[in-house]
């Protein structure tokens, strides 16, 4: 094949000779996953009033998991990272593992701020129904 970059330092793998069927298959997988995500999004939109908080959170986590699956297909097939050697895959994937801590810690922190604010830093119990009705004093004088 003439696709070789003329360098003795690189061995080109055979997958470059394959046809386009894998690309189109990936396209349909990505489209399918997106349609599932949208279905779940519409499910939440139409039924969120009837669902418990935990169920809504679980559905959102499922949507996030489908997004991770889409990311896998884009990076592995479209960006051909899956065709590279293990050394190359690891030098990209291992640093990105930081995101696991990054997401957990920061969302935890955000939730902690909310709790501190709603309880005046733990000095009173949080109201079950969050009261954020602003005091509209100018209404009163009408």
């Amino acid at each position: 094949m003439s696709s070789q970059v003329s360098s003795p330092e690189i061995t080109h793998a055979q997958e470059h000779a394959s046809g386009t069927s894998r690309i189109w298959k990936t396209f349909w997988v990505l489209s399918f996953l997106t349609v599932i995500e949208l279905s779940l999004g519409y499910f939440l939109y139409f039924y969120h009033g009837d669902l418990t908080y935990g169920f809504i959170l679980g559905t959102k986590l499922l949507i996030a998991a489908l997004t991770i699956a889409k990311a896998y297909y884009i990076v592995s097939i479209f960006m051909h990272l899956g065709d590279e050697i293990r050394n190359m895959i690891m030098t990209i994937i291992v640093p990105l593992m930081l995101f696991i801590w990054f997401i957990t810690a920061f969302l935890w922190d955000g939730n902690s701020w909310k709790t501190l604010r709603n309880t005046d830093a733990g000095s009173r119990p949080a109201q079950t129904e969050q009261s954020h009705t602003p005091v509209i004093d100018k209404d009163v004088k009408k």
Binding site: I92, P95, L96, L98, F99, F102, I103, F106, L107, D109, G110, N111, W113, K114, R117, N118, Q130, H132
Partner: peptide
């Protein structure tokens, strides 16, 4: 990869603020 961290930082910051309000 560095760009992914930039976007990740933006999105996680957004998530933090969103989690912190009622």
């Amino acid at each position: 990869m560095s760009d992914a961290f930039t976007f990740g930082a933006f999105l996680i910051s957004y998530g933090t603020i969103r989690f912190s309000v009622n």
